[in-house]
């Protein structure tokens, strides 16, 4: 296997409210009079380890609120982790010199879900795509135009459009602008956060094909975050399934779709609508996704799990290897 390009070790991210003076005072008073302060911290990501090797496509799957976007943001360096380390090519990004840290961050770029919200409506395409490479000294001023044309063409856009504003483009074209912007600083690693979720099926296919072409041409590595298992299955080498801030299962793509181990993965795969099924009976995982402010103790999935045992509500199952390269966090695997 190639050396890891990104490695997360014991990453956790918590979001808590910030208290102003008055709120601190009332909380302090309440505590003095014997009322413990209310826990309002969201554990968005809770002890996640993840390695992405050079050239690999890793799919990160989960439902809303499971923390998959937060992981993406921490990998891209947009958000610092509360706990744990982010390693870029084996080095902790927090220990790098300012210059090295800047270079490392340029090498990891992100493509966002909403092609309407992620482009500045008051900037022309030329500036959206060309500003960063110019500022970071990747190109000289006299190279700007030819470099820009090349970047736009690579993302499948007509370079004559470069004087236009984002509102003059369709959703699919905007997503191409976002891709051109990310690639203009010559990254090695792309974090795609639901990058095709907002697009129509026929446009989605065009963008997915573009991702695959770029991977081959530029030797890119992807962390592909999505709730759409069909898309992830098509694109990914390895898949990780998240539930409420934790990774519950990870394996090679073929393996996880053929032999899902964790009850959540099994339920998720069973519920995915497939175009090849006809007039099926829909059955459902019981219950709702719990709030990450107050997740269930032990295994987060136990209140909805058909196989839950007493142990599951007490003890958090560890992510263990159950077959070569296949990890799952479930107590069922401990039984004979």
């Amino acid at each position: 296997m190639n050396p890891p390009i990104i490695e997360l070790r014991g990453i956790a991210k918590r979001f808590g409210p910030s208290y102003d003076a008055a709120a601190r005072l009332t909380r302090g008073l309440a505590e003095r009079f014997g009322k413990p302060p209310k826990n309002e911290t969201v554990r968005a990501v809770d002890g996640v380890a993840l390695t992405v090797a050079k050239g690999e496509v890793v799919g990160l799957v989960g439902e809303s609120g499971c923390g998959k976007s937060t992981i993406g943001r921490m990998v891209a360096g947009i958000m610092p982790p509360t706990e744990g380390q982010v390693l870029f090519k084996g080095q902790d990004v927090t220990t790098l010199t300012p210059e090295a840290s800047r270079d490392a961050r340029l090498k990891v770029q992100m493509i966002f879900q909403d092609p309407y919200a992620s482009l500045n409506p008051r900037m022309r395409v030329a500036d959206i795509v060309g500003e960063a490479p110019l500022v970071h000294g990747l190109i000289r001023k006299d190279e700007f135009d030819s470099y820009l044309d090349m970047q736009l063409q690579r993302a499948g856009l007509d370079p004559t459009f470069k004087r236009r504003y984002p509102h003059q483009f369709s959703g699919g074209q905007r997503q191409r602008i976002g891709i051109a912007r990310a690639l203009a600083v010559q990254p090695e690693f792309l974090v795609c956060d639901e990058a095709v979720a907002a697009l129509d099926v026929s446009i989605q296919a065009q963008i997915l094909n573009l991702f695959m072409d770029l991977r081959r041409d530029l030797d890119l590595t992807y962390l592909f975050i999505s709730h759409d298992l069909g898309v992830v299955e098509h694109l990914s080498d390895r898949v990780m399934i998240m539930y409420l801030g934790r990774i519950v299962e990870s394996a090679r793509s073929e393996e996880i779709f053929a032999h899902p181990n964790h009850p959540y993965t099994q339920a998720l795969l069973a519920e995915v609508p497939r175009i090849d099924t006809r007039k099926r009976r829909f059955t459902a995982i019981k219950g709702e996704i719990p709030s990450p402010i107050d997740p269930p103790a032990g295994c987060h999935f136990h209140p909805r799990c058909p196989h839950a045992m007493p142990r599951c509500s007490v003890e958090t199952p560890a992510l263990r290897e159950i077959a070569p390269g296949h990890n799952s966090a479930c107590h069922l695997n401990d039984q004979g």
């Binding site: 099926v201 026929s202 296919a205 065009q206 069909g230 898309v231 299955e233 175009i275």
Partner: peptide, 15 residues
């Protein structure tokens, strides 16, 4: 163009 109608990792047929 639906991904599951295509072979894994191969180019999707597109309109």
């Amino acid at each position: 163009s639906v991904p599951s109608r295509n072979k894994r990792g191969e180019k999707l047929r597109q309109i």
